[in-house]
């Protein structure tokens, strides 16, 4: 069955340089730097990446960072809490626009 998303395509990510090498090299170099231990640990960065993966709803990223979080020593509770953080921010982003709706309603109402 053909689908838009194919799990095997994730393994081909590194090959995007085939069409534009210079930018791909810069991107992967940058990517590697970002995930190195710095002011944040690799473990903390993996949980952030897991949360962002859910917020942007990228199946490749979710597969990658679910395993990566386990390989950084995270447990299921921590991972699900990270997903809830993403959900809360997304939900909050919807709800905070309710203020704009209220403003508009008040503006046009007697």
């Amino acid at each position: 069955m053909k689908t838009y998303y194919n799990p095997d395509d994730l393994k081909k990510f590194g090959k995007i340089g085939e069409f534009q090498k210079e930018m791909a090299d810069k991107f992967f170099g940058y990517y590697g730097e970002v995930f190195k231990e710095g002011a944040l640990t690799e473990r903390e960065k993996s949980l952030i990446a897991l949360a962002v993966s859910h917020a942007i709803q990228c199946p490749y990223c979710i597969d990658s960072y679910s395993v990566d979080s386990l390989e950084k020593g995270c447990n299921e509770e921590e991972m699900m809490e990270a997903v809830h953080v993403a959900a809360a921010v997304r939900g909050g982003a919807t709800l905070v626009h309710g203020v704009q709706m209220m403003n508009k309603v008040k503006e046009v109402s007697m």
Binding site: T41, E42, R43, V67, L70, E71, K72, G73
Partner: peptide, 17 residues
């Protein structure tokens, strides 16, 4: 050792945890 089909985390950080 990992409880599943994945590799272990870095030893030093895990030891602290």
């Amino acid at each position: 050792n990992p409880s599943g089909a994945f590799l272990p985390p870095a030893q030093a950080g895990l030891e602290k945890q």
